[in-house]
């Protein structure tokens, strides 16, 4: 099966990272799968979580691989991947910058912060910079409302973020390189 978008990296993701593929195969093989497709489908979302945890995103080849193992159609798997915002089918940046768009953060100015990130990185919400360094996204409430507005960069939480802090946050990512 060749990849429909014609990109080689995507096609080869499974062959490119044989160890990750092995881990995914091991995870799928310990699931109590059977003949009943309906029951197998119950394990789809957790399998996709595992696959995304391993590969970072879910291109067609991975979706197809999971579909085969669970005895489902690619279309069914794609339907699920595209429905849930947690699943992504394109590679994301090394630094995932997420501005909380919960109500508490909104009334405290999260929209201004988000605009500043867009302006600074020259990308829109949901996009990744060309060098694959930064992805920008919105995030539903992380529950740190006392620190609103909140920005998360990978697992790190920045609280009480102002527009002025935006360049510093990005600089800090570079320093970690």
């Amino acid at each position: 099966m060749s990849c429909s978008c014609g990109c080689d990296t995507e096609l080869n993701l499974l062959t490119q990272f044989p160890k990750k593929k092995e881990k995914l195969a091991a995870y799928l093989s310990q699931l109590p799968l059977g003949e009943d497709r309906e029951k197998n489908r119950g394990y789809l979302i957790q399998s996709l979580h595992k696959a995304q945890e391993l590969f970072g995103y879910l291109p067609e080849c991975i979706q197809l691989y999971v579909a085969d193992k669970l005895g489902l159609h690619l279309a069914e798997v794609y339907g699920v991947v595209s429905f849930y915002s947690f699943f992504i089918d394109k590679p994301v940046g090394k630094y995932k910058i997420n501005v909380c768009t919960g109500t508490a953060c909104f009334v405290k100015g999260a929209d201004v912060v988000l605009e500043e990130f867009k302006r600074y990185l020259h990308i829109e919400e949901g996009e990744t910079t060309e060098d694959l360094n930064y992805s920008l996204g919105g995030l539903r409430c992380v529950g740190a409302c006392s620190l609103a507005p909140v920005v998360m960069v990978n697992d790190k939480v920045y609280g009480n973020v102002t527009k002025e802090m935006v360049p510093n946050i990005i600089e800090e990512c570079k320093l970690n390189d």
């Binding site: 979302i45 957790q46 996709l48 979580h49 429905f83 849930y84 915002s85 947690f86 699943f87 539903r140």
Partner: peptide, 8 residues
């Protein structure tokens, strides 16, 4: 446990 995947 079943995990959601981001859908309100």
């Amino acid at each position: 446990l079943k995990l959601g995947a981001g859908a309100f």
